[in-house]
Write a protein that binds this DNA or RNA. Structure first.
Lengths: 335, 335
DNA sequence: TATATTTATGGGAGCGCTCCCAGAAAGTAG
DNA sequence: CTACTTTCTGGGAGCGCTCCCATAAATATA
């Protein structure tokens, strides 16, 4: 079934049917209705390939997730992001092409995808500071949006969580509760989120006129096992609070604290970041920072569509706010 | 850049370039090399839409995940499946179109996707016994493969885990350890996996000549909270072992047992299903059944490609084996 | 040497759309 | 009633490929 056949059935031309399908205003109202009736009746859907070829636009967006980092696939961040992207695409009549970029494929395939005209643009959820995928994309002319800000390239558009502010609010909260030796377990410092959350930690200390004690800063790797071992290193330095840069590491840290015979929050206040589903079920429930992951996904889609339609507009940067989620693990209700 | 331009640069015709690109054997070896050289040099990639239109095949596969059930998105099953599908597609030079089917969109969009020629076939990871998406697909003529068997329709191809056998092996294991009141927390009985795992439980009892005690069977919902509350209902019936149909429910059940002042595995042996990452980190580590999720994904891709290329072949059914993972929670090393 | 066969190549047609231009029909103004 | 505008419609061209048929060249067969 194609336009021509619908035209035949309706008694109009292919062009008119096309106009109706595409909501072109220059169609007589009665003609429009007649065409729609037939279209629905025979359950006609225009061929996507032909459309893409003729219009030069496929209405398909690529979602690129570099898999190098994604031991992370064991935490729900990416699934939730995917969900946000997917539902925004549905709402905007776009389709999602998923590309889990395995390291070996990266450069080769990125070129292929970029040049094949399969997608109109891409959303890239990279976490690394200088990801080769981002590099490759920046050299090409396919519109793309980063999820997670880019620290250096000023010509890219991105959406990100306000990691710095979230961390800052959390550490300020711990200080306000009277903790004086607030340590932090950071994320990997080659990841933007890791760096920003550490910057927020430092900023909160500065806000209070406190100096940063390097002994109280240790780098984790966003895994539970990492959180455990790094916490063990931290314990002899006697922190009375620890801001952990991710909930999953916080769970590991919690175990380490327990195994050392210390109590949370009485002896050590513990705070995480992400507000993962398991955070509120931990023992004690974990104080953490909530980030709007679904909204990041949908915002990225909207930004990308905008960029596709206005390729020459200036880069957009959107930073979404975070929210402090206070639970028992930092003992606020005990103060 | 298109075929014609490459042809010009190489001094051959569009057709010959096309043959080279598509590895047609009827090309002179030296011509082939000359063309490839230029193709690589100018970084040419054939236009996907044009290809799709002309060849009637897009080399894009749809991955359909009905979102109704996917509170499940909080567990890593789907992400891992997606990963399996994605990497198999990469390996087979296909792209993945992801479609998280939200309930309202289901029927409307399925038609659209089916008829638009966007994808050559679909992999459907539905869990429900009679999912409307599956229904719609079955009525159309788009090739598709189910991940998770279909209980009634004999004309569909699928790949599944041997849920029945896995459950049976696990319950047999518990019985072998001397447990005499083996209960089960089942999954929802409108999900095939839930039903099959219960069937495996029953089969194991029958294998031993034991009768099924309905008092020891309770239905859960594949969530942790569900596992907790349902376990509380089960406790007064004094089971000495519980086979829980998913790890996430098992974690909930474990808490319930603890909260009741009982010990695992001494007083109650506990076993799960899925071998989720957190299973080995729980306290005590959880005995469970491992299923080959990644392989399911890649198998589905291969089956689908086969089905696309041989649309008239008989339906294939592949059931992949499970593996018992014995850890401390059922106390095998205490016996 | 003539004929059949194989190998390699070129070009036309067509996939199903969109976009543009031309022009008919209808409406408005002078 | 004519001239001009506006509204609506039709058809040609073309997007960049694949597929098929024709044909030239090279090789094998009689």
């Amino acid at each position: 079934m194609n336009l021509e056949e619908i035209a035949e059935l309706t008694g109009v031309s292919r062009s008119t049917v096309s106009r109706v399908i595409n909501n072109d205003p220059n169609v007589n109202e009665s003609t429009r209705e007649r065409v729609w009736a037939i279209v629905r009746q025979v359950n006609f859907h225009p061929n996507a390939a032909a459309r893409g070829l003729a219009a030069g636009r496929t209405r398909v967006l690529g979602l690129v997730i570099p898999m190098g980092v994604s031991a992370l696939f064991t935490d729900p961040y990416f699934p939730i992001l995917i969900q946000g992207v997917s539902s925004a695409c549905n709402a905007n009549d776009q389709s999602v092409m998923l590309w889990l970029a395995e390291p070996e494929y990266e450069r080769r395939t990125i070129r292929q995808i970029m040049h094949s005209g399969l997608i109109d643009g891409a959303i890239v959820a990279s976490m690394l500071m200088d990801d080769p995928v981002v590099q490759a994309l920046a050299e090409g002319d396919l519109p793309f949006i980063l999820v997670g800000r880019h620290p250096t390239n000023t010509r890219v558009s991105y959406v990100d969580t306000d990691n710095l502010d979230g961390a800052r609010k959390m550490v300020a909260h711990l200080l306000r509760l009277g903790r004086s030796r607030v340590a932090t377990i950071t994320g990997p410092q080659n990841m933007i989120a890791g760096a920003d959350r550490l910057a927020g930690y430092s900023a909160a200390l500065h806000d209070r006129g406190l100096a940063v004690d390097l002994e109280l800063i240790v780098e984790g790797d966003f895994t539970e096992a990492g959180g455990y071992s790094v916490m063990q290193r931290l314990l002899p330095r006697r922190p009375d609070a620890v801001f952990v840069a991710s909930d999953i590491m916080a769970v590991g840290a919690l175990r380490a604290i327990r195994d050392a015979g210390l109590r949370v929050p009485e002896e050590i206040a513990l705070a995480g970041f992400d507000d993962m589903p398991f955070a509120e079920r931990s023992e004690p429930p974990l104080t953490t920072v909530r980030q709007p992951t679904v909204r990041m996904g949908s915002t990225a889609v909207e930004m990308l569509i905008d960029l596709i339609e206005h390729p020459d507009s200036a880069p957009h940067r959107i930073i979404l706010p975070t929210e402090l989620v206070v639970r028992k693990s930092c003992g606020s209700d005990l103060q």
